[in-house]
Each structure stands twice: as structure tokens, then as C-alpha cells.
């Protein structure tokens, strides 16, 4: 299973590196979303912070949610891309014929998406700090939020992405399936990031725990059900 996962992940990353879709389309899209959000929220509007009474700009306060929304929209592009290459020219049949362990295919495809999202988050996150200027209260917690959210989004996204893999309606069906499922992840990631940026940290760790549990749930579901999904797609 691990060897098959490694093969699939290496193949997907090689395709991304070769086609430059991540660097030429997905990352610019994420940055653009971030910039447009910035235009939509007045930078001089201030809100009262819950702790200490200090005020923050609305843009600062909203930055965690805007960042994760930008990542979520970019994830949809990455997912469509990941399964479009399999749907083309009989590749899904070839994957079935090659005798791949379905769990290995799931781990490999989600592993490649994790790598792509981490690169995206590094760029978009840097952009968010530069554009919105939020403080950083707990860097370790922020890293934990990024890792668990990325895993949760990738595992759930890969599972639902496979559902639409062989369908003509894939481009519209996958967002319809994925967005409602990832709504709790978006909420938890936003709250956890707020804690990591503005404090206090204690509440944030509970959200990190939720995100970790979500990721584990979809990891298990993917390993168990990906074979059936590949057969039906």
C-alpha cells in the first residue's frame, strides 16, 4: 500500500511540476481571492477585540476566515485537476488494470494534494500577513492548525473528488459535494487560527483536536471505501 501511495503521489506531483497548473493557476487564484477580499472590506473599519478591550481592524479580524476561504476555493481547482488527469484517455481503466491497492491510490492522491496545498498556504499565508497585517500569538498552534486543516481538506476532498472522477459533470458536481462537507472544517480552522493569531491559545487547541479527528475520520473512510469508488467511477 505504501509503495503504491508513493508511486501515485510522485506521479501526480510530477504532472503538476510539468504542467505548472499549481504555480500558474492555483496559487495566483488563491492570491487573487485574498486581494479581492481585501478590497471588499474597508481597512479603516475597527472592531472591539474580546480580550483586553484593544480594537482591531475588521480586515485583521476577518483574515483567518478569508485565508481559509481562499485555500478552500483553490482546493477545488486542485481536486478537479487531480481527477481530470485520471479521467482522460482511459487512465482510470489503466489504474484498475495495474493492480494498484485502492488504499494506496487514495493515500497517494491525497498526499500529493497535501503537498500542493502546503505550498499554496505558504504563499497565500505570507500574502495574508502582508496584506491584512494580523498579529501572531502562538506560532506552534498556527502550524498545528495548518497541518490538521490541510490533512482534513485533502482526505475529504480526495474521497469526494473520486465520486465525480468519471462523470461529465465532474467540474460542477465536486464543489457541490465537497463544500458542504468541508463547512465544519472551515469553521474550526477559522476559530483555531483566530486563537493562534489573537489568543488565547487554550480554545484553539480544542479546535485543532476537532480538525485532527475529522482528518482521521476521512482517512479511515478513504482507505476503506476508495476501492468501491474507483470501481464505480
Amino acid at each position: 500500500m505504501i509503495e503504491h501511495a508513493r508511486l501515485i503521489a510522485a506521479k501526480d506531483l510530477k504532472i503538476e511540476w510539468s504542467s505548472r497548473v499549481l504555480t500558474a493557476q492555483v496559487i495566483p487564484f488563491g492570491v487573487l481571492v485574498l486581494v479581492l477580499f481585501g478590497f471588499g472590506i474597508p481597512p479603516d473599519r475597527r472592531v472591539l477585540a474580546s480580550e483586553g478591550g484593544a480594537s482591531r481592524s475588521l480586515l485583521e479580524q476577518a483574515s483567518p476566515g478569508l485565508f481559509w476561504l481562499a485555500v478552500l476555493f483553490s482546493l477545488l481547482l486542485a481536486l478537479n485537476r487531480s481527477f481530470a488527469v485520471e479521467a482522460a484517455d482511459g487512465n482510470l481503466d489503466a489504474l484498475r488494470l495495474a493492480g494498484f491497492d485502492p488504499a494506496g491510490v487514495f493515500l497517494g492522491k491525497s498526499g500529493a494534494i497535501v503537498c500542493e496545498l502546503l505550498v499554496l498556504e505558504l504563499v497565500v499565508g505570507t500574502g495574508a500577513f502582508l496584506l491584512y497585517g494580523p498579529p501572531l500569538h502562538d506560532a506552534l498552534q498556527l502550524c498545528a492548525v495548518v497541518v490538521t486543516t490541510t490533512l482534513a481538506m485533502s482526505f475529504a476532498g480526495t474521497l469526494y473528488g473520486a465520486l465525480g472522477a468519471g462523470l461529465r459533470l465532474r467540474d460542477t458536481l465536486v464543489p457541490l459535494l465537497v463544500l458542504p462537507v468541508l463547512a465544519p472544517v472551515l469553521l474550526a480552522a477559522t476559530r483555531a487560527t483566530e486563537s493562534a493569531l489573537f489568543g488565547p491559545s487554550s480554545e484553539g487547541w480544542a479546535w485543532v483536536g476537532f480538525l485532527g479527528a475529522f482528518a482521521l475520520l476521512y482517512l479511515g473512510a478513504g482507505i476503506l471505501s476508495f476501492g468501491s469508488l474507483l470501481e464505480e467511477s
Partner: peptide, 23 residues
Amino acid sequence: SHATALYDELTVEDNVRFWAAAA
């Protein structure tokens, strides 16, 4: 079959080695 089952973005070598390694 009629479909070639190859990844357009990969080289000939990458494609053949990938499917060979899978088997």
C-alpha cells in the same frame, strides 16, 4: 484499447516506468 492510457504531461519514459513499476 482505443484509449492510450498515458499521461500527456509526463514523458514517454515517465509513463512506461510508472505503469511498469505498478506491475
